[in-house]
């Protein structure tokens, strides 16, 4: 189904396709990076960047609500919780 509504903000279809393919590739690369990085703190920070990428992906696929949820939870709240847990574990290991 094609979108019937054209606004001053409507992006041409070709450009939108290119954007969607680009962001899909970036998300795949980001997910691979999160899995491959073994150092824990760095992994959490990469996860946060991955959350931002995923948020952009949702925006490019016309889901602004999910974008906001992903930004707040994936890029901020989850990394904070993980970093605090890592700090606790590190204290115990000392």
């Amino acid at each position: 189904m094609t979108l019937a509504v054209v606004t001053p903000y409507t992006v041409p279809v070709d450009l939108m396709d290119a954007l969607q393919v680009t962001i899909l590739i970036l998300v795949a690369a980001g997910a691979t990076a999160v899995v491959l990085i073994r150092e824990r703190v760095r992994q959490v920070l990469t996860l946060s960047v991955y959350g931002v990428l995923l948020a952009v992906l949702f925006l490019a696929f016309q889901a602004p609500d999910v974008t906001l949820s992903e930004l707040t939870v994936g890029a901020v709240a989850l990394p904070i919780i993980l970093l605090l847990t890592l700090a606790k574990i590190r204290k115990r290991e000392e």
Partner: peptide, 25 residues
């Protein structure tokens, strides 16, 4: 703003609530 504009914009209590919590962080 996000929590109080769910009815007009793409937003809502969930997103707004998490953003509010990050203010405390």
């Amino acid at each position: 703003w996000l929590a109080s504009h769910a009815q007009t914009n793409p937003s809502g209590g969930f997103q707004g609530g998490v953003v509010l919590a990050t203010a405390f962080v």
